[in-house]
Design a binder for these strands. Structure first.
Lengths: 132, 132
DNA sequence: GACAAATGATACTATTGTAGTATCATTATA
DNA sequence: TATAATGATACTACAATAGTATCATTTGTC
C-alpha cells in the first residue's frame, strides 16, 4: 500500500526542481533530462498542476513551467489531493448494505483517528521543507 | 486509498462473528447468512485464515471454522499482513535508478515516521477490542 | 457403505486504479 | 513563417483487488 503514488512523487520532484532552479521558467525538456522521467507522463502531470493552480505555464518558444506561488505555500497534501483524491483511509465496505454498527463501529473510529493523524502530519510538509 | 482492503475487512467481521458465537465451530453457511458476504469469496478468505493459523477448520458434516487461538491474541496487523502484505507506506519509486538523495531523502524520512506511527496504532487493535 | 454436508485446492474472470503513450491543436518567439 | 514550446484529449498497458467456478477430500448419519 502506498501513501504516495508515482503521479504525486513525480509532481513533487518536478516542483522541487523548479523551485531550486535559478531560471524561474523550466521546460519539460530540461526536467526530463535531469529527472529521468517518461516525457509524456511528466507532461500530463505538469499540465494538471497548471490547471490546478500549483504551477503556471508559458507557451511557445522559451516556454515552460514556473511556480504559481512560493515553495512555502505548496503542501504535500495539495499534491495528494490532486492526484490521489482526498486522503481517506476509512471507507466502509458496507455502505449500501445494513452495517449494524454504523456510527458506533469501533474499527471506523480507530481508522478515522489514524487518518486524522496522518493528515495532520502530511499537512505540515511543504515543498520548501523538502528542499534541504 | 484504503488502509484496509475488503479481504481484510471481511476476515475481520467473520472472525468477530465466530468469536461472539456460542457455538465454537461456525459454518460458512451461517456466516454468509448473517454477514451477507459473497459465499465463494468468503470461503477463500476463511481457507486462507486456516492455512495461516488464525482459524482452524473442521471438515465434513457439522464442520466449519473456529478460532485457533483467542480473540485477545489476534490483531488487525495480523490480518493486514496476511491479505495486504507487510504495511509499507514508503516505497521509493527511484529504487533502480539513481536517487541522489537515498539515505537522506527528507520525504522518505517523513513517510517512514508516519508508517511507524500507523503501525504502532494498528498493532494495538485486537479482535477482542472490536467486540464491544 | 452410501449419501449428504461440509471444507481444501486451484484455476479462472472481472473490475478498478495506476501508469504511461500518442497525436493533433494552439501559442509565442526569433 | 518556421520552430519550440505547452494544451487537450483519447487511447493502451499493467497490476492489484475482488470475485467465481469446479472438482477433490473428509466426516457424520442413516
Amino acid at each position: 500500500m502506498k501513501l504516495i503514488t508515482r503521479n504525486t512523487d513525480y509532481a513533487l520532484r518536478a516542483i522541487c526542481y523548479i523551485a531550486k532552479s535559478k531560471k524561474k521558467v523550466v521546460s519539460v525538456n530540461e526536467l526530463v533530462a535531469s529527472l529521468k522521467m517518461p516525457r509524456p507522463f511528466l507532461r500530463k502531470i505538469l499540465q494538471r498542476l497548471n490547471r490546478e493552480g500549483i504551477l503556471r505555464s508559458l507557451k511557445g518558444a522559451n516556454g515552460g513551467f514556473a511556480l504559481h506561488t512560493t515553495a512555502e505555500k505548496i503542501f504535500l497534501t495539495d499534491l495528494i489531493g490532486i492526484f490521489q483524491g482526498a486522503l481517506k483511509l476509512n471507507e466502509c465496505f458496507f455502505k449500501r448494505k445494513i452495517c449494524p454498527n454504523k456510527s458506533k463501529c469501533n474499527l471506523k473510529k480507530i481508522i478515522s483517528g489514524i487518518e486524522a493523524d496522518v493528515f495532520k502530519k502530511l499537512k505540515k510538509v511543504s515543498i520548501r521543507s523538502l528542499l534541504d
